[in-house]
């Protein structure tokens, strides 16, 4: 399965043509909860055709602030209403000191943060009565680290028991920004936890910095890393193409979907995989 992020920017064109042919769509609950009218109609039209994966933005799993259980209950209703297949969130924080920041900030890679985040993931899973997938985020600076990013992620996965949403582009971006080998990172990851993959483009804004924009096409080195990841996984998992800005012709997005599907297909032929 290769899906596409359902964006308002191209929702109408997507639904009124057959150019883009994803296996599923992904949407952020924050953009759709409590929404009616025109957008609700389009979402309902989309749900008649495609299964939904839900990918949260604002739950702020890694925040020092208390979890927002009222909002979490709204998410639970949304998951039920849309019959969503998956709910994922970010291994980051987006709220602090009782103020939302509307972007993903890096959690300090510390031992106490592992305990804190893991406990909160379990609380979320308990309330939702389902496992969630937690995404590796891109980050532009570490914050008071006591361990490596890889050790932090693996420790959270082990302690929380959550699934991993592996954003291969984020691994590439982080490896560039923080000078490590992305292949070794994939080798060291608890790949048995991977249940979902994100793929996207990025923007190099300086000789030593890449920003995860979701506004460009996927580049070849990220496709290669994806290919390597699929070989390591030994199982088929859903893959999402994220494109949030600078939206190209839908035919170009379909080409990217096709390329991702082809890489998956080739990898599946080579080995005896579990099917997802």
């Amino acid at each position: 399965m290769v899906g596409i992020g359902f964006r308002k920017d191209f929702a109408e064109e997507f639904l009124n043509s057959s150019v883009l042919q994803p296996s599923f769509i992904e949407a952020a609950p924050e953009n759709w909860i409590g929404v009616g009218g025109y957008w609700k109609k389009l979402l309902m039209q989309a749900l008649e055709k495609y299964p939904l994966f839900v990918h949260g933005l604002s739950l702020s799993i890694g925040s020092p602030d208390p979890l927002d259980f009222d909002f979490l209950r709204k998410i639970k209703s949304f998951l039920k209403e849309t019959q969503a297949l998956v709910y994922s969130e970010h291994l980051s924080y987006a709220k602090c000191d009782n103020a939302h920041l509307y972007d993903l900030l890096p959690i300090p890679f510390t031992y106490d943060a592992v305990d804190h985040v893991s406990e909160r993931i379990q609380q979320v899973q308990d309330l939702l009565q389902q496992k969630i997938a937690i995404e590796i985020v891109s980050y532009y600076t570490p914050v008071a680290p006591e361990m490596t990013e890889l050790e932090f992620i693996n420790a959270v996965l082990k302690k929380s028991g959550s699934d991993l949403l592996l954003d291969v582009n984020n691994v590439y971006v982080n490896s560039f920004n923080h000078h490590y080998d992305p292949y070794k990172f994939i080798d060291g990851l608890s790949v048995e936890n991977v249940s979902y993959i994100h793929m996207a483009g990025h923007l190099k804004i300086a000789d030593d910095l890449i920003i995860d924009t979701h506004g460009e096409a996927i580049i070849d080195p990220v496709y290669k890393l994806f290919e390597y990841t699929m070989d390591k996984l030994k199982k088929d998992v859903p893959v999402l193409l994220e494109r949030d800005f600078n939206i190209p012709d839908l035919a170009d997005l379909q080409q990217e979907i096709r390329q991702l599907a082809q890489i998956k297909k080739t990898a599946l032929k080579q080995k005896s995989y579990e099917t997802a």
Binding site: P64, A99, L105, P108, H116, E119
Partner: peptide, 20 residues
């Protein structure tokens, strides 16, 4: 709450920077 005060403070400092 399993988060230490120091970690909390570091997170808060980054958030304050983002806001101000």
């Amino acid at each position: 709450m399993k988060l230490l005060e120091t970690t909390w403070n570091h997170q808060s400092e980054l958030a304050i920077f983002c806001r101000t």
